[in-house]
Design a binder for these strands. Sequence first.
RNA 1: GCCUCCUUAGCUCAGUAGGAUAGAGCACAGGAUUCCUAAUCCUGGGGCCAGAGGUUCGAAUCCUCUAGGGGGCACCA
Length: 550
Amino acid sequence: MIKELIQRTLHNMGVEVDYVEVEIPKVQSQGDVATPVALGLAGVLRKPPRVIAQDVVSAIKEMTDSGLSAFDAIEVAGPGFINFRFKSDYLYEQLKRLYREREVCLRVDVGQGKRVLVEFVSANPTGPLHVGHGRGAALGSSLSNLLQSAGYTVEKEFYINDAGRQVRLLGQSVFAAYKNLLKNPTPFPEDGYRGEYVERIAEDIHATHGETCVDMDFEGCAQFFIDHSYKKMLQDIEASLETFGVHFDNWQSERILFDSGMVKHGIDNLREKGYIYEMDGATWFKSSALGDEKDRVIVKQDGQYTYFASDVAYHIMKIERGYDELINIWGADHHGYIPRVRAVLRAEGLQESRLTVLLVQMVTLLRDGKPVQMSKRAGEFITLKDVVEEIGADTTKFIFMTRRSDSHLEFDLEAAKKQSSDNPVFYVQYAYARINSVFRKAKETGVVLSRLHDDSLDLSCLNTEEELQIIKKLILYPLIFQGAVRSREPHRITFYLQELSAMFHPFYNKHRILTPDDNLTGARLLMCECISIVLKEGLRILGLTAPEWM
RNA sequence: GCCUCCUUAGCUCAGUAGGAUAGAGCACAGGAUUCCUAAUCCUGGGGCCAGAGGUUCGAAUCCUCUAGGGGGCACCA
């Protein structure tokens, strides 16, 4: 609201800005919200910032429709900040509005129906998910929730690498395990997958299909082993994600891209645009002309497509499906691929901003401070499922969501387990449960809850420092929300929820909510209801449960 | 060698689009419940924002260099 106000004011003064920074000052003496716009404009207008600030303040005061009634004070401070102080009546009004029109208040429409495709996890179906995938899953699903809440139309997609060497290697590994099981050993493939799950799949095949393949070589039954194995893994992956509370709208198969001719179509498409050439018997994509450091092979000398070929096709297909924005969440180890994928989009004439790649940094799994060695090939690792079973889905997600995605994460299992009794997630959930408990108590003791909807309910009794601070925090949620949406950082919501909870608990300890005074009780219940509305909304975005009892 | 991410309190991490006096949790020490859930609250100490330059009215934040750590640099996927 303040942003628009300032923007309009500046407009009237003949200055156009596309972004007005509004911040919440650290100390109360600096107002409830503040803006440093005047400082930024000092250079442009060639006037001292304090003078500009004063001009802005005067202009606001002259505007008839400025919503001046919302403020007790608008003042120039420090080097040229403009500090706003809310009138308490305005706070009460907004609190009532939040209570009545929660969705409108909380879900600011930033996206306006824009279609976004969020692709995440996309793990090779050659082994179980590990914690790193879990991090991507937590980010992807909460980001999707966040954007959806902000008015975007979001689709969540998992790209299945079911073509190519890796799934073949898995099939071959299972085949070897199967033969081994039947006492007809065959050499285990070099670089094969050695996990225990490989043996389980082999046992499963033995159980369902008997010994039919025991005398065959791999080529004789390759397709069967490959398909059976990766499908099994895919089921396992889907189940792990389900346990973790993450699900997808689409599962896009790489193989279908080949079978449906999309790969060929994609290459032809680039060829028409002049970005394909032949050299040394291979087919190249001229990505160096589009920002990549060198050209990339798409079809090898031996006629085989490279991995990148299907990636080209996949992204062209995404474009053709008509999304306004593509978001790819990748492990940081894929960062080298960004320029070549961007090159594809550029070749298609798409703006840079249409693709956002979010990199999720590595998770170092520790136990008692010591790194847990993990190798998919060697088959020694702790899976996402193991972690969720050991310390719980909410706690695990919260650990992910209290970090920026591009910072390295040390995940100590022992610490997490120890923490799981006093993990900050419970602090937030407990606040929610407590409020529910108060409402249960209120009903038991016959408090008339219909009062809360009553216009005559007077909130001016919410005048303690704690209450005013909480109300301000609540009505500034949209500011945090919009920042999180813009920067694609759901973790900002996590921190906000912790802060809000850290205001509620002291309030709860200091003041009684259910009092002999009916109006005061009503007012406090209304405020608590608003807190729980915001907590619930935030927890939902983060994919965490909001328990009514704890 | 080249590219990229990271380095903030004892530990794990925030720090919003360059803004005012750098924050939280954990850990540590002490205290609080006749009353709505003690998974709570209150009080306390803790910092060369890796280092050095630069840009600016103003830098943890932007640029350059240095040091340390992660990851990536295939006609592998």
